[in-house]
Simulated assay, not measured.
Amino acid sequence: MSKEREITPGQRTRLERRNLEIEEVWLAGNRGTCGGVEMTLAVVDRVMEIVPENVTVYTNNAPVNFPDAFSHFGERLKNVKGDISLVPDDSVFIVSAHGVPPSTYDDAKKRGIIIIDTTCPIVLDEQQKVRNAAADPNIGHVVFIGKGSHPETIGVKGQVDERAITVIDPEKEEGDKDYIDIQDVNIPDNSLIIAKTTYAPSFIEKTIERIKTINPTVDASRAHSCYAVSHRQFAGRQMIGDVDFWLVVGDESSHNSGKLRDIGEEHSKPAALITGPEEIDWSWFGEGIRRLGVSSGASVPERFTQRVLQPFRDLGIPVIELPKAVEENYRMFRQPNAQLDALRQRFAVN
């Protein structure tokens, strides 16, 4: 555990002027980007270095669910929000970490579009599980837990005939458009349950419990969160009892960041989800807020977390980085080097 300098009398005066009682900030050891996101970020940077500045690069979705990480590319990087028909023939197209259905690859090939595939290997494994289950006569049907409009769900659903998969969207509530009560869903015997990789483990478990009230024969043994989501959730739950306010860096579009914020609400602690220091409302930290807990979602590069911490450091508030609750000894996932080489050849870059 590393601790910064003590608060000086002058810094204490500045704290008092803000009416803050914060004595220290605890920073989660398990936080921020996972291996898949780091791979995607690195590949996008390489693509933008190879492609001339006057050439637009397209992507099916924000490459990862933290758009600020790509804002510096401006109009050079265009998100078509899943509609590949908006991508011109012979263009460069980045597949986001969430993946796409096979039809997207087929369309791109027909139209001479160069694909740079940054699909997370964990998502690719999930897609393979769905294909295997649909082809297995002892299973034959898949129940996928995922938000219907999310690109990962769209990519997974497109792997098999629509009759072989049922999507259950646990985020919809009664009164929402297209809401379907789980109790009204027909779930065949021995169906295999797969879950969107970025759902929190507790969220998946609660949904599985509801599904099993309909059909207890379902197999939920392969419904898992990715390691990074599980680790950030675990680390957050380890520290939440010792902090007075829970601050998470992440975008509202990121489900794993939202569920990380929800740890605070689940433990009756005030909490907020922000993308940068300009979103901090200092009135949050009123009377009794002496220790602030900070973490960041699996899509958030470390520099954005450090930006959020900087105003507290400027006030002289010590930032204490906690040891990792779970060791993460992964290597960054392999980049699509053959596709990048083809891109260099297209633009004659050495």
Rank of each mutant, 00 (worst) to 15 (best):
C120W: 04
P88L: 11
Y105G: 05
N79K: 01
S91K: 01
K109E: 15
I180W: 12
D178N: 15
C120T: 05
S191P: 10
I154S: 08
D83H: 03
V123Q: 02
V156D: 05
I193M: 07
N186Q: 13
D176C: 02
I113P: 10
A134D: 00
G146I: 01
K177L: 14
K157L: 08
V185D: 07
H72V: 13
T153H: 11
D89E: 15
L124P: 01
C120Y: 00
F73I: 09
I113K: 04
Q183R: 15
D125C: 02
V185T: 12
V100K: 00
N79H: 01
R76E: 09
A133E: 05
L86V: 07
E162I: 12
D107I: 11
A164D: 10
G99Q: 09
Y105E: 12
D106Q: 14
R76N: 10
V142T: 14
Q128F: 05
V142H: 06
P88G: 11
P102H: 00
V167N: 08
D83I: 05
N186Y: 14
D125I: 04
K172H: 10
I114G: 09
P188E: 03
I145C: 09
S85K: 14
I168W: 15
T119W: 01
T118S: 07
G148S: 15
G112Q: 12
Q183P: 01
D136T: 07
S91Q: 06
N186F: 14
Q127D: 03
I180V: 15
R131G: 06
